[in-house]
Design a protein around this nucleic acid. Structure first.
Length: 560
RNA sequence: UGGCCUAUGGUGUAAUUGGUAACACAGCUGAUUUUGGUUCAGUCGUUCAAGGUUCGAGUCCUUGUAGGCCAACCA
């Protein structure tokens, strides 16, 4: 219902227009067509959300189709990873398809094209063919094999299929136009010989179809109505249509390819080659390192799938070059986590505080709200005692009025606890503050309802009772690149922009309720940020990843 | 020096198809707050350029300018 109010993107305009003409609503079908040769990243997420989002909007099926036409690069491992990622994002595909399922049909059609004089076997080296291809400004020249007889072509193609030739000896080419201004129309290769086992068809085939010959025909076989791809495929559209022209039948739906601009995220790279380089050089720990823009990396980082979907929805889709600021993605991550993440207390940079008027050996359990955004989240109890940790940044011997934290002679509220006052501090031989001595007001306990408890003090600090603290490894992540567009610089290699401080590991002191968390759990460490339990965690050692920090207006003030 | 695509605040996207340029993020003010979080209120700022058509142009036309894509037996 709300949907009708939302403005349409240009793809939706195209669909609406088509619905008014030659398509009915039941004709609509989409597809997400990854090549199983690597991990999915944020750019794919955008395409997934676009195609599956359209499916949801029009109540149309969406196929997951693996474009597996190159056994030299593709593996089942990637198929499984891709399926997991799409599911995790929250989408369900209609059919699970593989281009390799259509190899026989594609072959039969290719034979038809040969018989029709529309395709021929070329027997030159790739270098020779490249030379003949011409350049964008000069036409190409025709291959000397271009006018082989149909019988000869048929025989040769059959032999190629049977594995009678080494790789690189012959290819099948479409006979189109060597003078076309579109380089892709200059007799594009349809088949090449590859002697290699395929992850699904094993060694059944010795020839494999090229992308252009496969993609549109697969769309046609699956009766995909709108085949959406990125802008660099725009010149392919002419060829996509040419191939379809050769075999499409009137009574079946004819797919159309339309193109959109890929989404670029600031402070990152997404090309498979570059991501691989980060992995191989050990800049990151793997494809699912929480700093990687891969879907598995973002999952491990703790980005909720809802936030990724909302993000993609917000940035929309268009045809111009773009760089979306990563802070918009972080906004959606926070927006979601704010609603669902339980609040807990953890100290990452501890400074010991002794409450001198609190009885030694005594402890008490204080009631704490789990999530102020969600009453149903309930409460828990946190232990308080004479010695606690606060953050080092939360204490200064002296500071101006703008510092809402603890300073000598000043008061501050301990979250869920008492109001304390800093009386003195001790330093080590280097002048570093190692302990702060405070007094507390026993009547100021949070929630007790006393006049003292209602007293307003400007600052509220999070804290952890030392005696009760659990320790954990905390992995603090920052942006992987210092530059907004690391791969857009022509003089400098993107590796020069790698942020060497993108991972900082510290020991955190946590309130004891955190003892029971399991891998994947997400919490807010109050005043610090959102964290999740990393998969490396064991019973002996807890490990948290910082998903994203809280918005920090104090940090901004300090910069000024 | 060919062909094709694109140009709207700092960023990303809209604009009922020729009729008041708006939404989100970011920024800035302030209020609320037992998270310097959240929330709320306010604020800053936009049609690549020059012509033309029109009562009226972000939208149509012309010419520029800038950016992108195209010469893998990759997808």
């Amino acid at each position: 219902m709300e949907e009708t109010k939302k403005s349409l993107n240009f793809i939706e305009h195209i669909i609406e227009e088509d619905l008014g003409k030659d398509y009915s609503k039941s004709d609509l079908r989409f597809r997400f067509p990854p090549e199983p040769n690597g991990y999915l990243h944020i750019g794919h997420a955008s395409s997934i959300c676009l195609n599956f989002g359209l499916g949801l909007r029009y109540n149309a099926p969406v196929n997951l189709r693996f474009d597996d036409t190159n056994p030299a690069k593709e593996e089942k491992e990637y198929v499984d990873a891709i399926k997991r990622d799409v599911e995790w994002l929250g989408f369900q595909w209609d059919k699970e398809c593989y281009a390799s399922d259509y190899f026989q049909q594609l072959y039969d059609w290719a034979v038809l094209l040969i018989k029709d004089g529309k395709a021929y076997v070329d027997s030159q080296s790739s270098e020779e063919m490249a030379k003949q291809k011409g350049t964008p400004t000069e036409p190409g020249v025709e291959s000397p094999y271009r006018n082989r007889t149909v019988a000869e072509n048929l025989a040769l193609f059959e032999q190629m299929k049977n594995g009678d030739f080494e790789e690189g000896i012959h290819v099948l080419r479409a006979k189109i136009d060597m003078a076309s201004t579109n380089m892709l129309m200059r007799d594009p290769i349809m088949y090449r010989v590859i002697h290699r086992a395929h992850h699904r068809t094993n060694t059944d085939w010795c020839i494999y179809p090229m992308y252009d010959w496969t993609h549109g025909e697969s769309d046609y076989i699956e009766q995909v109505s709108h085949s959406l791809c990125t802008l660099e495929f725009l010149p392919h559209r002419e060829l996509y249509d040419w191939f379809l022209d050769q075999l499409v039948s009137k009574d079946k739906l004819r797919p159309k390819q339309r193109e959109f601009a890929r989404r670029n995220l600031s402070h990152t790279v997404v090309s498979k080659r570059k991501l691989l380089k980060l992995v191989e050089d050990g800049v990151v720990s793997g494809w699912d390192d929480p700093r990687m823009p891969t879907i598995s990396g973002m999952r491990r980082r703790g980005y909720p799938p809802e936030s990724i979907r909302n993000f993609v929805d917000t940035i929309g889709i268009a045809k111009r070059d773009n760089v979306v600021d990563v802070s918009l993605l972080e906004f959606h991550v926070r927006e979601h986590l704010n609603k669902v993440a339980p609040r807990v207390m953890a100290v990452l940079n501890p400074l010991k505080v002794v409450i001198t008027n609190y009885p030694e050996g005594e402890e008490e359990w204080l009631k704490a709200e789990n999530n102020p955004e969600d009453e149903s989240a309930g409460t828990r109890e946190v232990p308080f005692s004479r010695e606690i940790y606060i953050e080092q940044e939360d204490f200064k011997e002296e500071a101006n009025r703008k510092f809402f934290r603890l300073k000598l002679g000043g008061e501050v509220r301990l979250k869920n606890g008492y109001i304390i006052k800093a009386e003195s501090c001790t330093k080590d031989e280097n002048g570093n503050i190692v302990e702060v001595q405070c007094t507390y007001d026993p009547k100021s306990k949070s929630g007790s309802g006393t006049e003292e408890s209602l007293r307003k003090v400007k600052g509220t600090l999070h804290w952890v009772s030392i005696k009760h603290a659990e320790t954990a490894e905390i992995r603090l992540y920052d942006r992987l690149f210092t530059n907004e567009t690391p791969d857009a610089n022509k003089e400098k290699d993107f590796m020069e922009f790698v942020n060497r401080d993108s991972l900082q590991i510290v020991t955190g002191y946590l309130e004891p309720s955190l003892k029971n968390v399991t891998i994947g759990d997400q919490v807010q460490f109050q005043r610090l940020g959102y964290f999740n339990v990393d998969q490396d965690s064991t019973d002996e050692k807890l490990i948290f990843n910082r998903t994203v920090g809280l918005r920090d207006t104090w940090a901004k003030l300090k910069e000024k």
